[in-house]
Design a protein around this nucleic acid. Structure first.
Lengths: 261, 261
DNA sequence: CTTACAACACTTGTATACAAGTTTGTGAGC
DNA sequence: GCTCACAAACTTGTATACAAGTGTTGTAAG
């Protein structure tokens, strides 16, 4: 089968929603072209579409990178989600019983994944809850918008969230569904607002994302004996670059390895 | 200067927001490339970006067309706007005085354009009101979303609106601003909901958009003697001024479906 | 040992050529 | 006169070649 640009787009987006692709990841055109068995042209199309959806960014002649939202952009994304999702709930006059059932089922799946410790499924399901909720309105346009926003906030969480609070989120989801079941839309909207605000508050937006995070992650887990004694450690809050942020290069600048022994 | 893809994108989008480009207009790659003095590649990029934003659609090997939303899609677009814009207002806790002043000024401009009979400015300003309002939050992401949605509903209005009710819309805008000025956010949100609902209700979504509208429009205004006796005109008269300017794509070339006779 | 510099490999940006499909125009046959 | 078949013109789809930068690395001077 010959993957279309939509396939490529979708593959990347769902990988992001599932948390398999980190923010800042470089997505080389040629690599992707080889991977999907098409020419660069198609990959480029997909990347440009993803760029207009706010998922990736291009750095001129350096490559395509999964976005690394700044603190300001993170705030905007969460505010946008609060605006849209509370507005959505308030528009929902009544929730059909089968939708409630479907949502309850979804929350049950969340719990399952959490209990099983399945990190991948867990992240995917937690984001999917909001998409499913949007589906309740049956508005494809709105669902699409929320889907893109969810991808964005998922990436933000990966950048700034010190610890995942999956259980708490799932609990919130359960409360929202419960309110919907009793028909108390107003409460559901309030709970949603608080839920999103809570997720945002759980982030550490003051901490500049570590430009070496990718490398560090690649190196630390391999705890075999031959590894260097200690990676310098997640540094204390270092001063932020004053003028503009550079799209973090995935590879280290140069290893001025002054290791002290 | 060499127009970038963003320039092309923006040129087309603002032409749509200003009502200079009708839904269904064909946008040929080569024509646009010649017009902007670039190769097809750049035009293609711009079109694909606009496609992901829901502004144009491609019909395989036939061309790019400005979207002609179906009745169902129209409903979705208006519902989405209601959800987002009421949500936005409710998020707005207080409105800074200078924003209120700016909005009042904007409404004054609307009135001016309406009184002057400037159809082009009028349509542009009426849509721009909502974009300005979104600006009040200072959330660029949300503003961008609303901008795209406004483009979409502008096109829908061109397709389905039998008569423009510019004065009424501008009046509604004034009421909303007045409510904001007194700090009565709740009322502002309600007014906005009613306003958008009213605009939607003013459409005739039951009427299938005339696939020959473009052609008919091009032919009817020329009321010279030698013209064919009468264009069949299956629909009640649509009174759109010819405004003999030529759009970006000179040919309004429609895919003619089967005609009833 | 550090630093400056130049060459190199690699990536995206853009145009162009050709393939594939659609619409339009033309003429033969009835 | 009308319909149908077929060819020509035109349009988008896709790949490829080359141009233009960017970051890295090797090397030599201080």
């Amino acid at each position: 089968m010959n993957p279309s640009t939509a396939n490529i787009e979708e593959a990347i987006l769902s990988a992001i929603l599932a948390g398999r692709i980190n923010p800042g990841t470089r997505l080389g055109e040629q690599k992707l072209a080889d991977l999907f068995g098409v020419s660069r042209t198609r990959v480029r199309e997909a990347m440009m579409r993803l760029e207009t959806r706010g998922i990736v960014q291009v750095s001129a002649r350096r490559g395509w990178f999964v976005i690394e939202p700044s603190a300001e952009e993170a705030r905007e994304a969460f505010q946008t989600r609060r605006v849209i999702e509370t507005g959505l709930l308030q528009t929902l006059r009544r929730v059909p019983p089968e939708v409630v059932r479907s949502l309850k089922e979804h929350v049950a799946f969340e719990r399952e994944a959490i209990d099983a410790g399945d990190v991948q499924s867990r992240a995917c399901l937690l984001g999917d809850f909001h998409i499913h909720l949007a589906d309740a309105l049956g508005n494809r346009l709105l669902t699409e918008i929320i889907r893109d926003l969810t991808a964005r906030t998922t990436l933000i969480s990966m950048l700034y969230q010190p610890t995942e609070k999956a259980e708490e989120s799932s609990h919130d989801h359960g409360d929202i569904v419960a309110a919907l079941e009793t028909g108390d839309i107003e409460t559901a909207a309030r709970l949603m607002d608080e839920h999103i605000a809570k997720v945002e508050a759980g982030l550490d937006l003051t901490a500049k994302p570590d430009p070496l995070a990718g490398l560090r992650e690649l190196l630390t887990p391999s705890t075999f004996a031959g590894a260097p004694p200690s990676i310098p450690s997640p540094n204390p809050p270092l001063g932020r670059a004053p003028s503009g942020r550079r799209p973090a290069a995935p590879r280290a600048h140069r290893h001025s390895s002054r290791k002290e022994d």
